Amino acid sequence: MPERIVFHIDFDYFYAQCEEIRNQSLKTRPVAVCIFSDRGGDSGAIATANYIARKYGVKSGMPIKFAKARLGEIKESTFLPADFAYYSDISEKAMGVMRNYADIFEYVGKDEAYLDVTKRTEGSFERAGHLAQQLKNQIRTEVRMTCSVGVSSNKLVSKIASNFRKPDGLTVVKPEGVESFLGPLKIGDIPGIGKVTEEKFDEMGLKTIEDLRKVDIFTLNKMFGRKISAYIFNAARGLDDEPVAERQPTIQYSRIVTLKEDSKDYEFLSKSIDEICLDLHRTILKHNKMFKSVGIQFVQSDLTNKTKSRMLKNPTSSMDEMKKTALQLLQEALSDQQIAVRRLGVKVSELSDMEGQRSITNYF
């Protein structure tokens, strides 16, 4: 039986890379993608930052105000509101490329996936390394993004390996090299071990995974209980038998447009709803889907976000239903709207496949 081979693929600074695709000039600037809160101004947090911004200490989860303080002297630094509909489109394209390389494909998130490639590589790590490079090349060509890939005989080691040479890395860890690869790494490099746990080990004088191996299972049991201690004990040795399992993303389809002018006038905004729904409906039919939830999204003049959604009684693929619901939500949202809208979007979710073999025209 061939040796199991698993890829873990992780996109480098995903949201910021997506922004670089549509604006190439951002590649030479510090870029931070922000999730603005409803409080206005710079209230909110950084979703992700490119590597130039990271050199100045900007990182995910940091308050926007702190990030701006760190990049304050750099004129070309750019802070952008998160555009999740656009990022989902890029992710879907990238995942489509990855699926073609996998015996078994496991979706983890917009920027992350596991691939079991045992059959197509016949258990050869040399072939796996070549296949991983081909995958990276195709993603760079078709999606115009870089990703980092970890290759090993299990999910745990592959995940650690994908983070080893970021950005744009490729790390192959053969079974006989697992312990020597993991040994010098920090204990916090093990997935699931957070700062608090790492600090506990640090107080014991344990800093590396090699140090962690010196702790017996009984001591770990006293510290963390059976389940967690078993995970830590096995992870320090690169042991993991969890299979790569097919798991589809919770998909939603959405479209968002930048308006010709900022406005909170219903008549003006409703015209854009018509166009957005028409475009979104084409996607629904293309993927042979029905939806049960409709939502609208505002990006306001101050770059804060506002959303409103409604669950329908039954799944449908009707554009009239989509448009009617979106317009109702628009009217309700505008009743107390204080700030003009800069970008307007519609999304559909709670998706299901078209029922049976009935014609799609039955749902119009």
Rank of each mutant, 00 (worst) to 15 (best):
A47D: 00
L220Q: 08
I190C: 03
M319D: 07
Q300W: 05
S37N: 07
S91L: 04
G345W: 04
E275I: 14
K308Q: 13
K292Q: 11
E199Y: 04
E179W: 00
K119S: 14
E261P: 08
Q252W: 12
L185A: 12
I193Q: 06
A82P: 03
F268L: 12
G40L: 01
F181H: 02
I90Q: 10
L303G: 01
S152T: 06
I74H: 03
E73C: 03
R342C: 08
I187V: 15
L344N: 09
Y253S: 00
S37T: 15
M319V: 14
V346P: 06
R343S: 05
I284D: 04
K59M: 11
E20I: 04
V244M: 08
T146S: 13
K159F: 11
E126T: 10
T283F: 07
I284R: 13
A49K: 00
V348L: 00
Q331K: 15
Y114K: 07
M223G: 05
L220K: 10
K227P: 00
S60M: 11
S60L: 02
E106G: 03
D42L: 02
I187P: 01
S162E: 03
K186L: 14
G57C: 03
F66V: 14
C147G: 03
Y56R: 10
I273Y: 09
I232D: 10
Y13I: 01
R29K: 15
L278P: 02
K289M: 07
P63V: 04
D265F: 01
E19D: 04
A230E: 15
V157I: 09
S272H: 13
I228K: 15
I139F: 07
K292R: 15
P243F: 04
K174A: 09
E261A: 10
M322Q: 10
L71A: 01
V348P: 09
G177T: 05
T171H: 03
F181V: 06
E350A: 15
P184Y: 06
D189G: 03
S309V: 03
Q328R: 12
G40Y: 01
L185N: 12
P2T: 05
Y363W: 08
R247Y: 01
K119P: 03
M98T: 02
I339H: 11
V178M: 00
K75A: 11
S158A: 15
I360H: 09
L26M: 02
N23A: 12
L312C: 05
S359M: 08
K308A: 15
G61D: 09
G192M: 06
E126V: 12
F298L: 13
F218T: 14
V6P: 04
K324T: 13
S301D: 10
D320G: 13
I228F: 15
